[in-house]
Every structure is written in C-alpha cells, then in structure tokens.
Design a protein around this nucleic acid. Structure first.
Length: 224
DNA sequence: ACCCAGGGTCATA
DNA sequence: TATGACCATGGG
C-alpha cells in the first residue's frame, strides 16, 4: 500500500477520465436488472448479455418472482445468447431465491456494506467480482471491482506484482481513491472501456494495452 | 480457424 | 493452496 502505488492509480484514473469522459455506469434501468447483468456477464462479452436481457424483458420475466417460478430449461433458453446458459440459469435462480428470501432490495439495502458483501458471497454462483458489481452498481456502495482487465493494466503499469489476491487489489484501489462511490464507479467502467479501445483505436496509448495478448507487448518483448 | 470475452465452481494432488 | 477442466455463445 505504498504512496507510489496510490499515485499511480490516481494518475491512471485521471488519464482515463480525461480520455474517455464519465461513463455513468451500470448500463441498466433498475438495480435488479444490474444484478442480473452482473451474473450473466461472467466471462462473457456484454453484447451477448444484452441479447439475453432483452429476451427476459420481452418475455416479461425480468423480475425475481418470474425467474424463480420459471422452469429452469425455459430460463436457460431465454438467456442462451449469454453463454454458459445452463450454469447461469442455475446461478440466476439461486440468486433470486436468496434475494426474495431476504426481502428484496428494500431490506437488503439496509445492511452494512461488509455484511452485505459476505451475504452475497454466500450465494452459489456469486464470486468476488460479481458481488462487487452488485454492491457498487446495484447498491451504490463504495467498493472497487477488480476484473481481469484491472489486473493486466495494473501489472503492466508496474502498480502490482501479479501475486496479490482479489481483495488485495480491491483494497489498494479503494485506498487510492478514497473520495466517493462515483470514483469507484468510473474507474472500473473506464478500465473496461479502455480495454475495448486500447488495441484497436489507439494501440500505443500511454497506459498500454490491456488485452490478453497485445501486439505492443509482443513487439517490446521482441526488441529486448 | 483461432482468440477472446466485464468469472466461478469443482475435482484432483 | 494451487493448478486444471469445465461451462458455451457470438464478434473480430
């Protein structure tokens, strides 16, 4: 938790913010839709998730009551475009059962962040990143979301060594940007947006590319 | 044809 | 605790 790491994260945030502007995430109309999106987007392109959510909306099933009372194979069929549809149908059902058993949004929002985080992690199919997506974008808590992009970016910027665990990276970013929910919201969103652009639009950007395999990185390795 | 995507769980050693 | 297999669609 060095000052150097904090400064680097702050600088990266300002750089990305200046470059892309505020993103105003999460793309979704209601907290529940955001939660569904958080589960469906696990290791999946967002464009595919949009199709699945569209199907749920069109079927009039984008609510926890409909999802828990629906035959699992029908739910799987509706979310098919988002991939892993059998797995995710089970995860969505588990999540909605938990959500309803605990009184839904109005009851859950009364819980303190760390306790709510523990409860989310206890739901089968909700791991650390999904839990933090739900906390940050669904419940508007000051929590940072660490995804694969964040790890690669921080690693290639020399901010982390690569052996830090999930919570280590999360707390590092939360310490670096102590100000507001807004900053947590924007930093994660900007990193994702940057990932989509960094190799195509501006391959040699200052913060470097954060795709898994980057031409820029490969060239550097070849020249050294 | 290959790579990858806004992960998580489970079985094995 | 640490690695690997598995889940599966769709765009570049």
């Amino acid at each position: 938790m060095s000052v150097r790491q904090h400064k680097a994260i702050q600088r990266t945030y300002q750089d990305l913010y200046h470059r892309y502007g505020p993103q105003h995430w999460w793309p979704g109309d209601t907290p529940f839709e955001i939660m569904v999106g958080a589960i469906l987007t696990q290791n999946t392109a967002w464009t595919n998730v949009e199709k699945a959510i569209h199907n749920l909306k069109q079927a009039g099933c984008l609510d926890p009551e409909s999802i828990v009372s629906m035959p699992i194979h029908r739910l799987a069929e509706l979310i098919r475009p988002s991939g892993y549809f059998n797995v995710k149908a089970g995860r969505l059902t588990h999540y909605c059962q938990w959500y309803l058993e605990n009184g839904g949004y109005e009851q859950l929002k009364a819980l303190k962040t760390q306790f709510l985080r523990q409860r989310l992690l206890s739901v089968h199919g909700v791991g650390p990143e999904t839990a933090d997506d739900i906390l940050l974008y669904g419940f508007r808590r000051r929590v940072f979301v660490v995804d694969a992009y964040t790890r690669r970016l921080f690693l290639r910027l020399g901010i982390i060594e690569g052996e830090e665990d999930y919570d280590g990276v999360r707390v590092l970013a939360e310490e670096a940007l102590k100000r507001s929910v807004k900053d947590m919201n924007e930093l994660h969103a900007l990193i994702v947006i940057h990932a989509k652009n960094s190799c195509r639009v501006r391959p040699l950007c200052e913060t470097c590319c954060i795709r898994r395999r980057c031409r820029f990185q490969a060239d550097q390795a070849a020249n050294s």
